[in-house]
Design a binder for these strands. Structure first.
Lengths: 312, 312
DNA sequence: TCGCACGATGCTCTGAAGGTATTGATGTCT
DNA sequence: AGACATCAATACCTTCAGAGCATCGTGCGA
């Protein structure tokens, strides 16, 4: 049982289209005798007569004309498979498992997906909402390709890049005395006030930002919440003051006033004191494939547009 | 630019599934070195790295795992193409262009299609309603494979076979004196009565049957219609008497009475005087493929069932 | 009736693909 | 830490599938 060969199918297509062995052979850049033999082999391999040939004429049998259609399909499938493999290697096609944190990255996901769908329509993004720690684990296990999370990370196995920076705001209830103060606030402006801060483990990043800002003041932390939205709701209820990223102002919680803060010194060397809240993209060190590079580029592009929109 | 070979794809599938060149080679009944070379050739032909291999381990790249899926598809398509070609050759799959005459064969088409769909689900029947002459032309031009028509035919280019015989009935209005006569009628019973006959060219077969039946009587033909249904409507309106095939009684024209006739002698040698109305299947002489044979068998089977139903 | 067009067949030879032996690199076990 | 085992890659040789050339057989047209 000799198997069917692609060459045989190629030969068959030529003969079926020309209905003439000589011309078909010419088209295939070969001579007629081996072409006849290839067709014979194909017919025995398929187990059916595909071409009815007298000494003077060639015609397709019904089995042959059906097989011709299928032959086209096979070659198209092969061509597409090759082209698709190339696109995947070049990063213009493929699948990306993208992790994100609910409260921080969710705002850029919509524009990101739109932008990717426009530029890289063959790239499929599968979203995974996880806390930073979960994203790190996912990347190490190969479940995620890219994460959008808050520092710090284990830089021995992960690479990261800042994709967005934004200012830290104080948020106070509209009825609060601070609501009408002019100019940026310093820690001393919060002296004696109740502060809504964040969970030291579950929301470590914002907890540390808050602590860093308050370090030289004399305020007191009265709550440790896990979600920024929770903090804002508590502030609206008059429970105290909270520090939130600038983009939180677009969450639309009513009855709140957002106040600029003095620059926050003491971050890592590359940080921007005016925009201390950083969102990082993270991935497995050494696994920055062309596809990830493309997606990362779109993430930064979208995040930058988002930041600009916040400035205006 | 060496083209992709099926052997290369086969090798790739084995390696991709085993993730081990040695085991994959064993599965392919070959040794490891040529397998390595086949994979290399495939990768250069595709233009992408499909397998990431260190000296100790083999892993699929993302391009490779996508190509693996496509590889399965290609092999499935090939297998199906081969199987389909065999089925078409054996006659258990394919397409049949079937001609039929509106008034005569239409009653068996429904059961025929049901029966074919049950036994030969991969056979597609395309119906063409044509008069006998149109069917003959269609068969000669290759537009039709099989026809259901009335004799005579040009037997030098067509083969034919009787698929159904049925009695000829006289149909009279319920108010007519003949409606109450007992026993089969002879031509003398119609003496002096107005007869509805058929168009000598367009409905030649029934015209000749009518003339043959009346040849020794003294009735007069007052109409030449083209359709059996037309004749029956005229009879119901009291315009005269008509001769119709037995199956016409199932057309459901109200106010009619069907009378048996004496046997009709003088047909061709094989004819049955009690059932002189014949339906023939016709096809291009020498073109009785297995598929046509199957379909023809179903036609006869269904027509026989139909006849039996009429007898009861 | 002859000749020609065209597919099939026989024979030879080349080159692609397979096999054996070996290398080189990388984990693993003691 | 060193000896060993494992596994893919490479080198070299061998074989057979497939290509080309020459020829045959047979219908169709002049």
């Amino acid at each position: 049982m000799a198997p069917v060969t692609l060459d045989q199918v190629r030969c068959f297509i030529a003969v079926a289209e020309e209905l003439h062995f000589g011309r078909a052979a010419e088209r295939l850049s070969m001579t007629q005798p081996p072409l006849s033999r290839q067709i014979q082999k194909l017919e025995t391999a398929v187990g059916a007569t595909l071409l009815e040939r007298s000494n003077r004429t060639v015609a397709l049998t019904s089995a042959g004309s059906e097989f011709l259609e299928d032959s086209y399909r096979i070659f198209n499938a092969l061509d597409q498979a090759v082209a698709h493999a190339r696109r995947v290697e070049s990063g213009s096609a493929g699948t990306v498992h993208l992790g994100f944190t609910a409260t921080s990255a969710i705002r850029i996901l919509g524009p990101l997906l739109v932008s990717l769908d426009k530029d890289l329509p063959d790239v499929q993004v599968i979203l995974h909402e996880r806390v930073t720690g979960g994203q790190v684990d996912g990347i190490r296990r190969g479940e995620l390709d890219l994460g959008l999370a808050r520092p710090p990370f284990d830089t021995t196995v992960l690479s990261s890049r800042v994709v967005a920076r934004e200012p830290l705001y104080a948020v106070v209830s509209a009825a609060h005395p601070l609501a009408t103060v002019e100019g940026p606030l310093g820690p001393e402006d919060l002296d004696g006030l109740p502060i809504i801060s964040y969970h030291p483990v579950q929301a470590r990043y914002f907890h540390e930002l808050t602590v860093r800002f308050l370090v030289n003041g004399h305020s007191r932390i009265v709550q440790h919440v896990q979600q920024i939205l929770t903090a804002m709701v508590l502030v609206a209820a008059g429970e105290g003051v909270a520090l939130v990223p600038a983009s939180a102002s677009t969450l639309g919680v009513p009855g709140l006033v957002y106040k600029r803060l003095n620059d926050l010194e003491g971050g890592h060397p590359d940080s921007d004191p005016a925009r201390p809240v950083e969102l990082h993209a993270i991935w497995a060190r050494g696994e920055l494939t062309p596809l990830l590079r493309h997606v990362l580029h779109h993430v930064q592009e979208v995040a930058t547009r988002h930041d600009d929109a916040l400035k205006v």
